[in-house]
Amino acid sequence: MTALLEVRDLTVRFALPRPAPFQPRPVLEAVRGVSFTLEAGRALGIVGESGSGKTTTAMATIRLEEATGQVLFEGTDLLGLSDEEMRMRRRDIQLIFQDPYSSLNPRARVGDIVREPLDLLGVGTPEERRQTVRELFAKVGLREDQLSLFPHQFSGGQRQRISIARALAPGPKLLVCDEPVSALDVAIQAQILNLLARLRAEMGLSYLFISHDLGVVRHVCDVVAVMYLGRIVEMAEAPDLFAAPAHPYTQALLAAAPTMARRKSKGFSRPMQIEGDPPSPINPPPGCAFSARCPKAQALCRETMPELRPLNGREVACHYPG
């Protein structure tokens, strides 16, 4: 297998407003030295809570956010391309958003929305483009007679189908999905997840899949990276990660997700219950970012940041894994 996408040491910094005149602007590091590899045809999931930097990582990977590091897409460093070169490269890398309500231009007809990427790239004749749009509509489960409607005339699930059709239009190799189902009702969620699974199989797509929902990630992804405060703390093949999480934070996430396996009537206590909220990325602690909430934390954890190291076929950033 060849690496479709290789991200090396990706870092995203945001300058915050000055606290007072003439003082330096504080810098927030939303993503701190993230590296991962996505092989063609596979799905890599990034999970984490709010503030973990998972969405920023995705946006920086496709250069919708300024970043340093390297993003090698089929061997080309996207961060080194000129704006115009990057613009042409976008046909290979497409994006599906979280909110099906705000990601479609409310003043454009959905047929035009799906056709827009083709128009921008100047693919084929106008009639061929319209034909492509009709085919895409059928592919994602929408009807041709809905082409000239506006986004607000559709339900959330249908809008997400429109979003998917637009992303598929230029024939991408990589689809970046930013929480694509978290705004949808469970029954609709299942429809969209099944659609994404089918499209991946049919079209040989690769997914970079961002989600806070472990169940969704488990269902879609082959490889999972867990992020906490801008860093990857654990990355493994999905079955391994869910069967035996090595990082205490991964363990806590799994213990926290509500599941039908735990019943009130039978009584249960979570195998790993952590206190407090995720810390703010403005002043990250010097050691392991999770040490403040980690029940296993030792003095070493509070002083030294653990690096992401290989461990039994996976990678973990923890001084005391397992």
Partner: peptide, 21 residues
């Protein structure tokens, strides 16, 4: 509703689906 939850305990191939809205 129960079948369409992408569960932590099973890595499914296809989720049960309730068609329509």
């Amino acid at each position: 509703l129960i079948g369409c939850i992408p569960s932590l305990d099973t890595a499914g191939d296809g989720l049960a689906e309730i068609p329509g809205v």
